[in-house]
Deep mutational scan, measured.
Amino acid sequence: EDPKKEILLAMLMVDKEKKGYVMASDLRSKLTSLGEKLTHKEVDDLFREADIEPNGKVKYDEFIHKITL
């Protein structure tokens, strides 16, 4: 499956209130437990690539855009 789609799906599952962003810690939890599970190192690399703080907010569109360039 398309990794971009899988990450967006994980974000939507976490963002039940439809705020347009999720906490990095919640996204990490989903990405390491769903679908093609990522390792913590892979998530760290994704966050670093997208300039996301480990305890920060992750906005869908910015995150998807940064990791798919």
Rank of each mutant, 00 (worst) to 15 (best):
H65I: 00
D26A: 05
L46W: 08
T32I: 08
F47A: 02
M23V: 06
P54V: 06
D26E: 14
D61H: 04
S29Y: 08
I52Y: 03
K41W: 07
K16N: 08
T32N: 08
K66R: 11
I52V: 10
K41Y: 11
L9C: 05
S29E: 14
L27V: 04
A10N: 14
Y60K: 02
T32D: 08
L34E: 12
T39Y: 00
P54S: 08
L38T: 07
R28S: 01
E53C: 11
I67V: 12
D2R: 07
L69C: 15
E62H: 00
P3W: 15
K37H: 09
I64D: 07
L27C: 00
I7G: 13
Y21P: 04
A50R: 05
A24H: 00
L38G: 04
E6L: 06
D26S: 05
I67Y: 04
K37Q: 08
K57T: 12
K37N: 08
K66M: 09
A10Y: 05
H40N: 14
I64A: 07
I64W: 07
L8W: 05
M23W: 12
E17N: 13
V22R: 02
S25T: 08
K18N: 11
L8H: 06
A10W: 07
T32K: 07
Y60H: 02
T32P: 01
I7D: 14
V14F: 06
M13N: 15
T39Q: 04
Y60L: 13
S33Q: 13
E49W: 14
D26W: 01
D15M: 11
L38S: 03
Y21W: 13
N55W: 05
E42V: 04
K5Y: 12
A50E: 12
H65G: 11
L9Y: 10
K18P: 08
Y21Q: 11
L12W: 04
K18L: 03
R28H: 07
D61K: 09
K4V: 13
T39K: 06
K59N: 01
H65R: 14
L69G: 15
K5Q: 11
D15N: 07
K37F: 14
D61T: 09
G20W: 00
K59Q: 06
E62S: 01
F63Y: 09
M23E: 14
V14T: 10
T39E: 05
M23G: 10
I67F: 15
V14G: 14
K5F: 12
E53T: 09
S33R: 08
E49K: 06
K66W: 14
G20H: 05
P3H: 12
R48P: 00
D2F: 14
D26R: 01
E49T: 03
E62L: 00
E62A: 04
L34S: 12
H40D: 10
K66E: 05
L34Y: 12
L27T: 00
L69S: 14
K4I: 13
I7S: 14
V22Y: 02
N55S: 10
K5N: 04
V22E: 04
F63L: 12
I52L: 05
K5V: 07
D26M: 01
L46D: 02
D2I: 15
R48Y: 02
L34M: 15
H65A: 08
A24E: 05
M23Q: 13
V22P: 01
S25E: 08
P3V: 05
K4E: 10
T68K: 15
S33W: 02
L12Q: 15
N55G: 07
V58F: 06
Y60W: 10
V58I: 12
K59Y: 12
K66T: 05
D51N: 11
S29M: 10
S29R: 14
E49L: 12
L27Q: 02
K59W: 08
E62V: 00
G56S: 12
F63A: 10
K5A: 12
E42Q: 11
I64H: 00
K18E: 13
I67W: 12
M23T: 13
V43D: 05
L9V: 06
T39C: 02
M11N: 11
L34G: 13
H65K: 14
V22N: 00
D26Q: 10
E6K: 11
D15H: 06
R28N: 02
I7K: 15
L46M: 09
K18W: 01
K59A: 07
E6G: 05
A10F: 04
K16E: 09
D45V: 01
K16V: 10
I64Q: 04
V22A: 05
E17M: 04
D45Y: 00
D15F: 08
D61Y: 06
L69A: 15
K37A: 12
V22K: 02
K18R: 11
V58S: 02
E6I: 04
S25C: 03
Y60D: 01
D15L: 13
D51M: 09
G35N: 14
K19M: 05
L38H: 03
F47N: 05
K66Y: 10
D45C: 04
S25V: 00
R48A: 11
D45F: 00
G56E: 10
S29G: 08
K18I: 01
K59G: 04
A10K: 15
V58R: 00
D45L: 03
K16Y: 03
K66A: 04
I7E: 15
A24S: 06
G56A: 11
S29Q: 13
L46P: 01
G35M: 05
I7H: 14
H40V: 11
D51C: 07
G35I: 05
D61S: 11
D15I: 11
S25A: 12
A50D: 02
A24Y: 07
L8P: 09
V58E: 00
D61C: 02
M13K: 15
A10P: 09
F63T: 04
